[in-house]
């Protein structure tokens, strides 16, 4: 199980980075960045996991029963929110670039500008 979780993190992160390297479209690039970042959510939740423990929510569960680490879950929440806002900003910048140069291909844009 431990290897599987680590492999999923590495795979999701790697897919995103590879996509960012070969990307030919700024919108695709933004999505790749989101995919890479998703790996950090999985990593954080994996780190906080404890065998045989429930969610850190004690409604209807006796106090003191084993629960996974709530701190990393709160960090994941922050991670998600920041990720979404950055994606929105990048997409708006991509729209702006398209308006200025008529292209969303990073190589073409670079060539246009010399």
């Amino acid at each position: 199980m431990s290897i599987l979780a680590a492999l999923v993190v590495a795979w999701v992160f790697g897919v995103g980075v590879y996509g960012a390297i070969v990307s030919r479209n700024l919108i695709h690039l933004a999505i790749c960045l989101s995919v890479s970042q998703s790996a950090t959510y999985i990593l954080l939740l994996t780190v906080g996991y404890r065998h045989g423990a429930g969610a850190p929510i004690f409604k209807g569960v006796p106090l003191g029963s084993p629960a996974v680490d709530p701190v990393v879950q709160a960090l994941t929440l922050t991670d998600v929110v920041v990720g979404v806002t950055i994606t929105a900003l990048i997409l708006a910048l991509a729209l702006d670039v398209h308006r200025e140069s008529g292209s969303v291909d990073p190589d073409e844009i670079a060539e246009l500008q010399g």
Binding site: M1, S2, A6, V47, G48, P56
Partner: peptide
Amino acid sequence: RFGEFHGAYGRMLNAVAV
């Protein structure tokens, strides 16, 4: 190791939050 995290803060918060 997977499933064996013993973060001090997380444990304490799980105990005192309620």
